[in-house]
Design a protein around this nucleic acid. Structure first.
Lengths: 104, 104
DNA sequence: CTCCCTTACTACGTTCCGCGTAGCAACGCA
DNA sequence: TGCGTTGCTACGCGGAACGTAGTAAGGGAG
């Protein structure tokens, strides 16, 4: 496997963080804004930094040198691969579901 | 809102149950098999029946008359609508993520 | 006819994620 | 110098996810 399922059960916030970082390195607060725009719901700090910590433990993201008070993160190669796999899985599941809805 | 987000944080098992029922009414054990084929991971009873109970509480699915020892369920109109909305949301999020991955 | 495997569900407990609240520090600006 | 924004840490509650175990009925093999 070695997909995002390694994060215990798979979490939406973790996916949002990865997608946000896919557009380039960012620190936490910027991710909150980005995710807010992307999904319509801005995650609170508890949600966001919890997801970040777990992603870092799994080496899907890594911290860059802290500057000012900001802690930027970027995707690792493993994170990029896991994100791609997860997104493709999602897309095909959504397609399969929509097909079933259309037929019935 | 009134999407699947009402189920506390949105849950993957709940989504799988809805997709499974989108292909027609089923009882729990049949859903386990169907979801196993669909996703590669067959949910245990704790996961499955927990998700079913919550979906029924939200009136996204409803029980049909029990026959033999089987408790079949089917999608309600609300469930069908919520599933469609969720799947379209998923598909567009996956597309946006993949776009970001491709560019970077 | 009796054992066992499969089907089908219920009950229960643990883990740990999601999420909100609160707090703190630095910066800008009026 | 006071206030809003930025940026993160700390903390705690509720509840979903998931496994394990238990129950019960049916069917096939021997």
């Amino acid at each position: 496997m070695a997909g995002l399922g390694d994060l215990g059960r798979f979490s939406e916030p973790a996916l949002h963080v990865l997608i946000s970082l896919a557009a380039g390195p960012k620190h936490g607060y910027a991710m909150q804004d980005d995710i807010g725009e992307l999904t319509g719901a801005r995650p609170g700090p508890g949600t966001l930094y919890g997801a970040i910590r777990r992603l870092e433990e799994h080496a899907y993201i890594e911290a860059l040198p802290e500057q000012d008070r900001r802690k930027p993160y970027r995707l690792t190669d493993a994170g990029r691969a896991a994100l791609g796999a997860e997104l493709r899985r999602m897309r095909s599941l959504a397609a399969a579901g929509l097909r079933r809805l259309a037929v019935a």
